[in-house]
Design a protein around this nucleic acid. Structure first.
Length: 418
DNA sequence: TCTGGGGTCCTAGGACCC
DNA sequence: TCTGGGGTCCTAGGACCC
């Protein structure tokens, strides 16, 4: 048996923990650069704000309903997530952190065999210790746990915890096909066209037919809904295969100077992440493009690939490679909106030594990176950086309404007045 | 005027090998 | 006129997840 614990409206709930006056008010949280809506409190959902809506198109609705708008505050959300997960771990050793706001829990090892009661206790503990409300679904497979979780959220009167009952038909009928884990927009459209509207309809389908009309992944989903396990708890995450660092520009940029500084910044962040996970990359892709939405202005999208020989995680090597790849494809005369660096073919441990590299250089680079990382860890990100990333504010994010980083920055701790 | 930033897996088709 | 039967690797695109 599996449980899925999922934080309700996670980012909006995080905003509320330290600002209780936001309770029961509509709250939306924006993406980087304050672009579009990425989280909504229940009240905001009820008003009709949709995930991914650009905020500038919602200004009227925001005004009309006195909606509280916040820039995203990932330092806060990341730390709150850690607290929630820590609490969950007290209830079961078998936990898979599935995303920033979700965890799968294997229940079979629990001493109290009344899973529903135990999960209610866990829910109460998380709420009391972190201030974050969660919903929990219980089922025989991960997909069924997800489904029960969805049901729990849609049915507030049951108190946040739902278990797939012996006869699941009623619950399966209550869940739309598009709400099933693994069935997205395209597939649910296709399913509705062939008369499959709910989870109940879906489990009636012949798995072989699903495999033929869709693919093996869709078939696994159907089998999981029928109670056959295809997805197990993954406690030790697989080694990542790719790593992408990219950002939209707060406002369009037109010069190589600006774009190259952005690319160098992304290369820097990507390299840091690589070292953090003790990986090296063998292939680098770099890209930049104009707005995907503005069709009136000239559009252009450029990308280039370069091999990293030998595979590396050294910041200056990666910056150099990224710029060397980007410069030949640079084109003047466009308003660029986004740039990024994509690292592929990642591997762990000692890479194959190159015939042409000098061992001294390798040791030197390694030492430089340790010093760099140590300084930036202790004194703040970006304290030491390469000149290629520039000294201007090209990369500055628009974040007009970010709440304080209450739990991760000394200067921003909440104060208790006596 | 203003539209995020990450990931994974699968499939089809093309190029190559014998 | 008639044109086999295996493979592998790579890439792009499309689906899904958060």
């Amino acid at each position: 048996m599996y449980a899925l614990a999922d934080c309700n409206n996670f980012y909006a709930s995080c905003e509320r923990v330290f600002e209780p006056h936001l309770a029961r008010k509509p709250v939306v949280v924006l993406s980087n650069n304050d672009g579009c809506i990425i989280a909504r409190s229940q009240e905001a959902k009820d008003i009709g704000f949709k995930m991914g809506d650009p905020i500038f198109k919602c200004r009227d609705l925001v005004k009309q309903h006195n909606v509280i708008v916040r820039s995203s505050n990932f330092s806060l959300y990341g730390d709150m997530s850690r607290r929630v997960m820590q609490t969950i771990r007290l209830f079961s050793p078998d936990v898979e952190i599935y995303s920033i706001d979700e965890a799968f829990i294997k229940l079979d090892g629990l001493i109290d065999r009344n899973f529903e009661d135990e999960m209610r206790r866990m829910r109460a503990a998380v709420l009391q210790w972190t201030g974050i409300p969660i919903s929990i679904g219980i089922g025989k497979t991960k997909t069924l746990a997800k489904l029960a979780n969805h049901y729990a959220k849609k049915t507030p009167e049951i108190g946040g915890v739902a278990q797939i009952p012996k006869n699941a038909n009623e619950m399966l009928r209550a869940v739309e096909v598009g709400a099933i884990w693994g069935i997205g927009r395209q597939w649910s459209k296709k399913f509705r066209n062939i008369g499959v509207h709910t989870a109940f309809d879906l489990v009636q389908m012949e798995p072989a037919v699903i495999k033929k009309t869709f693919n093996i992944v869709a078939m696994k989903t159907v089998m999981e809904l029928r109670g056959c396990t295809y997805y197990r708890l993954e406690q030790t995450p697989e080694q990542r295969k790719t790593l992408l660092r990219s950002r939209s520009f707060a406002s369009p940029v037109t010069t190589w100077q600006e774009v190259s500084e952005a690319i160098a910044s992304h290369a820097t962040r990507a390299a840091e992440k690589l070292r953090n996970e003790e990986l090296v990359a063998s292939v680098l892709k770099v890209f930049f493009h104009t707005s995907l939405f503005n069709h009136r202005k000239p559009r252009h999208s450029a990308h280039a690939t370069i091999e990293l020989i030998p595979p590396t995680s050294t910041t200056h090597t990666i910056i150099k490679a990224a710029l060397a790849a980007a410069y030949p494809i640079w084109k003047e005369g466009f308003e660029y909106k986004r740039a990024g660096v994509y690292l592929l073919e990642l591997s762990k441990g000692q890479p194959q030594a190159s015939l042409f590299e000098s061992p001294e250089e390798k040791i030197r680079d390694k030492n430089i990176m340790s010093v760099l990382d140590a300084v930036n860890t202790n004194m703040g990100a970006g304290t030491l950086h390469f000149a290629a990333t520039g000294f201007t504010k090209v990369m500055q994010m628009r974040q007009l309404q970010r709440s304080p980083r209450y739990t991760t920055h000394w200067d921003e701790l909440p104060q208790v007045m006596s």
